[in-house]
Simulated assay, not measured.
Amino acid sequence: MSDTERKRYSEKQKVKIFDEEFLPHIDSMYNFAYRLTFDEDDAKDLVQETYLKAFRFIDSFQEGTNAKAWLFRILKNSFINDFRKKSKEPSKVDYQEVETFYNSDEVDEPITTDLRVETVQDMIGDEVSIALNSLAVDFRTVIILCDLEGFTYEEMAKILDIPIGTVRSRLHRARNLLKEKLWNYAQSMGYK
């Protein structure tokens, strides 16, 4: 759709679309963002950035189409852009934080590790989430979109901007990788 063909919404229409078509998906957006970032604050920031972009570019949204898929695509692109930007930046050290620590009373306290706590923490956890989170982001993303969010292959292809055949093969490979990672856990739970 060219700029001349693009529909211009009034401010009232924009707010209506935002409230009725975009906001109902905020929980799914947060869950997807969290599964990509593994950090609550980063996930919230990513969702906020997604909704800001969605409102800013609302004129390019076709009312009545799949708003959830449109939002997921914006979120996925924002995540990839942020990831690329951060991977090119050198590591940063907050010297103020280091100075504060060394000037505090805690600097002389011995740091001990309670191995009992660490051992129990390692034993407790959702094995499926751990296995899913250990997958590469491309594989993790297709499983989240298909198996957790219920998108069709066609919708996933649009969100990820890849051919449907690639979606299918990536999903097949991702499921096999997940199955391999969960094999020992399944056996320990009595499954054959």
Rank of each mutant, 00 (worst) to 15 (best):
E106W: 14
M156H: 00
D126F: 10
L71G: 04
Y30F: 15
I124M: 07
A69I: 03
I143V: 11
D138Q: 13
E89Y: 01
V47S: 03
E97S: 10
M123Q: 08
W70N: 06
Y30P: 07
F101W: 00
M29E: 07
T65V: 07
R116T: 14
H25C: 08
D82P: 01
R140L: 14
F32E: 01
A43M: 00
N81I: 12
Q62K: 13
T152R: 00
E109W: 14
N133I: 05
Y34H: 13
F32N: 02
D105R: 07
E99L: 09
I130G: 11
S60E: 03
T113I: 15
S28N: 13
P24Q: 09
L52W: 05
D42W: 05
T152I: 01
D114F: 13
D126H: 08
T152V: 06
A67C: 06
K88M: 03
K68V: 05
I159W: 01
L132W: 05
T112Y: 15
F38A: 13
F139T: 05
I58C: 04
I130H: 12
E106T: 10
W70Q: 02
F55Y: 14
A131C: 08
E21P: 00
T119C: 08
N77D: 09
T112Q: 10
F55C: 04
P110W: 05
D161L: 05
N31D: 15
F151V: 06
K53I: 09
P163D: 15
E118I: 11
L135N: 10
F61A: 04
Y95S: 02
F79E: 00
K88L: 08
L132K: 01
P90L: 07
D105P: 06
I124F: 10
E109F: 15
K86A: 11
F22V: 06
R56A: 13
A67M: 03
F83A: 12
V47T: 12
G125E: 06
D161P: 01
F22G: 08
R116D: 14
Q121A: 15
V98E: 06
K44P: 02
A136Y: 13
F83E: 07
N31T: 11
V117G: 04
E127I: 03
N77T: 08
V107K: 11
F83W: 11
I74L: 06
L52M: 11
T100E: 15
M156S: 02
K76Y: 14
T113A: 15
Q48N: 11
E109Q: 14
L145T: 03
E63N: 09
T119H: 09
E118H: 07
D45R: 02
D59I: 08
S104V: 06
D42S: 13
K85V: 00
P90E: 07
D41R: 07
